[in-house]
Design a protein around this nucleic acid. Sequence first.
DNA 1: TTCATTTCTTTACCTATGTAAAGAGTTTTA
DNA 2: TAAAACTCTTTACATAGGTAAAGAAATGAA
Lengths: 191, 191
Amino acid sequence: MEELKAYFNGISVLSDSTWDKIVPLFNERRIKRKDYFVREHELAREIAFLKTGVVRAYFTNEEGKEYNKQFFVGSTIIGAYTSLLTGKSNIIAQQALTDCVVYACKYKSLTDLYDTHPDLERFARKIAEHYFLEKEKKEIEIVLLDATERYSIFKNEFPTLEQLIPQLHIASYLGISATQLSRIRKELISQ
Amino acid sequence: MEELKAYFNGISVLSDSTWDKIVPLFNERRIKRKDYFVREHELAREIAFLKTGVVRAYFTNEEGKEYNKQFFVGSTIIGAYTSLLTGKSNIIAQQALTDCVVYACKYKSLTDLYDTHPDLERFARKIAEHYFLEKEKKEIEIVLLDATERYSIFKNEFPTLEQLIPQLHIASYLGISATQLSRIRKELISQ
DNA sequence: TTCATTTCTTTACCTATGTAAAGAGTTTTA
DNA sequence: TAAAACTCTTTACATAGGTAAAGAAATGAA
């Protein structure tokens, strides 16, 4: 649980009394490669701290094609944030790409503490602001940069991931086909 | 100031004592068409409630090309959120596309109240969560839909805007050239 | 270890969209 | 109100990236 505490306090420091309340809410769980933390078409109820492993968040369009929205590499928080916030059915599945260890927690047990623990609500505010900043960065990258440049950013941001997961997941994350990623890689190597 | 109160309370209800504190922080100001609420390369300090008018948020790449990230149509909140949150120099300018009336407020005078007014910090949390949801929606649209479909969504979302602002701003919002928007419009009309 | 499955690359062909330039039509503004 | 500055559309051509299919290579399972 130390990694979780360090990660959380890095975002917004929580008081000892708040920690005493929330530590027991988190339970360790293992997720095997290819298993799901949260699926499509269900109500998300949990948030988790990803201690080790790699998770992808993706959505599937009507034709069944997948688009990888995000990769999570421990230590970080995972969970179907949009479904948790809106209470609507989830459209973005989160699947383990390697075996994972997480500390999972009912989201509602946390939000129930906001009234009595303003430091936890402050933490939630900072998390939301943080996610907003991440999204804005990605939005600008998608519109401003071509696939070759986004591939470079991906390699900087996730230096270990390229060896760990199939190319097709990386292509899907970059918003291009595996064919096109193959062309880009060929082009980069030839230089 | 009634529109502001109604809009804010719609997001998260604020107590009377909090309203007494924050109402005097907002000052009415007029922004002429083509003038800026916030520019690139400056530190953002203000947030505002857009009472009437249309504002665009855009960024400019190294070659000087502009991309319209967002349109704001009153009543709504404007401000260079990313610069306010990070304290870094702003990269996304906000410019009036029509004459506007805003109630402006120093962002810091609001955040200074978080410690003593948890209902205001709750409001800030909900705003951040709301912005996150908006971005996620747009991210999915950009990746999943082609320009013709995004144009339909734009027309639904901003039914009045098409007559009010130049096509080139709409094209830039859709992430395409004015040439391509012209082709799409021609195609839609021919059906 | 071998067979089946998955992954990666290549090829051929197609399409959406980009750029540049030019002309017609509209607004501004001096 | 005349000239200047925008705006919109069209054309011609270029290109990034899509799809489908097939073979090679790598990985996983029996």
